[in-house]
Computed example of a mutant assay.
Amino acid sequence: MSRLSVSMPTPRFECSFDSNWGHRQSSKSVPAGTLSVKRGRQSEDSSREEISLSPHPSGFRRRMPYMTLQHRTHYREEQHLTVMVLPGGKVSSHRRSRFWHLSNLRMRPFSVAIRQRGFGVVAVRYRKRGWNGPEQSPVADARQILDRIKARNSDAQVILLGHSMGGRVAAALSGDAAVVGVIALAPWWPSGTDVGLRQRCLLRVVHGTADRWTDPDLSHAAVERARRSGFDAEWIGIDGAGHFMMRRPSLWHRLAADAVAEIAEKTTGAKAGERR
Rank of each mutant, 00 (worst) to 15 (best):
R39F: 10
R12C: 01
T68N: 10
I51L: 15
P57H: 04
G40F: 05
E14A: 12
R12F: 11
S26L: 12
E77S: 13
E50Q: 14
E49M: 08
R39S: 15
S29P: 07
S5P: 01
K28E: 12
V30L: 10
M67Y: 00
Q79T: 11
P11E: 01
S46W: 13
S29R: 12
H56N: 03
P55L: 02
S5H: 07
V6P: 00
S46F: 11
R63G: 01
R72G: 02
V37T: 09
L53I: 14
V6R: 12
I51H: 08
M64H: 08
E77F: 05
K28N: 10
F13D: 01
F60M: 06
E78R: 09
S36C: 07
F60L: 10
V83A: 01
F17P: 00
P9Y: 07
S19W: 09
Y75T: 14
W21Y: 13
Y75D: 12
T10I: 07
Y66S: 10
T68R: 11
H56D: 08
L69S: 06
E49F: 03
C15V: 08
H71E: 06
A32W: 06
V37K: 04
G59E: 02
W21K: 01
E50D: 11
E78D: 15
G59F: 00
H74Q: 11
E44K: 11
M67D: 00
R41H: 13
M67Q: 02
Y66D: 09
R63E: 11
F60R: 15
S52G: 08
V37D: 06
L81F: 01
F60C: 02
Q70A: 09
P55I: 03
T68D: 07
I51V: 15
G59Y: 00
S27L: 03
S16K: 14
P11Q: 04
D18T: 15
H71D: 03
L53H: 02
S29Q: 14
H71K: 07
Q79R: 07
F60N: 06
R12T: 05
Q42M: 09
R41W: 13
E44M: 12
R72M: 03
R24W: 09
R41M: 13
S29D: 15
S36M: 10
L53Q: 03
S52Y: 09
T73Y: 02
G59T: 01
S54P: 00
R41Y: 11
F13E: 05
Q25F: 05
R48M: 15
N20F: 04
S26H: 07
Q70N: 11
